[in-house]
Design a protein around this nucleic acid. Structure first.
Lengths: 70, 70
DNA sequence: TCATTTTGTCAATTATATATTACACTTGCT
DNA sequence: AGCAAGTGTAATATATAATTGACAAAATGA
C-alpha cells in the first residue's frame, strides 16, 4: 500500500524544452521552486492538480510524465 | 491558482465496468471508501499515486480520467 | 414488502503535500 | 578570477489529502 512508488520524467521533459528552469516551471504551475525540485527528484507524490498543470506547461500527456514503478 | 479545479470521470468509468462498487475500487486502490466517494464526487484533488492506481484498475489512461476544468 | 448492499455524508483525527526562509554548491558567463 | 543564475537540501509551519467510526438514505434483489 505504501510501498508503491510513483516515477516521473518531469525533469527530463523540462530540460528537453530548453527554455524552462525549475523556478520558471514552478511559477507557471503555481508551486514553489522547492516543491518542483522535490517533484523532479521524485521524493513524493504530488496532487493530480499540480501534475495536470505540469503536463499542460510541458505539453506532454499525464501518462507520458507519470507512471507506477512496480 | 486556487480556482483551477480538477474534474474526473472515475464514477462513470467505474459504473461502465459493471462489476465494481465504490468500496471494491477503494480496496483495490488501497484507500477508504470515503476517500473514493469524495474523489468521485470531485470534492478534492487526489494524489497522483491514487490516480495512477485508479487508472490501472479501471483500465483507462490518466488523461481519459482526469482533466483541468477552466 | 423486507432485508441487504451500496452510497452520501458528518465529525474528528492523522498523514503528508506544499509553503517559507535560508544557505551552500554548482554552472555559465565575462 | 569573479559575479549571477540555477540547483539541492534542511527545518519549521500550514493546508489539505486521507483515515476512522458512524449513521441515514437510497438502491438492489428476493
Amino acid at each position: 500500500m505504501k510501498n508503491i512508488s510513483v516515477k516521473n520524467r518531469v525533469k527530463i521533459a523540462r530540460i528537453e524544452r530548453g527554455d524552462l528552469t525549475q523556478g520558471k516551471l514552478a511559477n507557471l504551475v503555481g508551486v514553489t521552486r522547492q516543491t518542483m525540485n522535490l517533484i523532479e527528484a521524485q521524493k513524493y507524490n504530488p496532487t493530480i492538480r499540480v501534475c495536470l498543470l505540469i503536463s499542460k506547461h510541458l505539453e506532454k500527456s499525464l501518462d507520458e510524465l507519470f507512471w507506477i514503478d512496480e
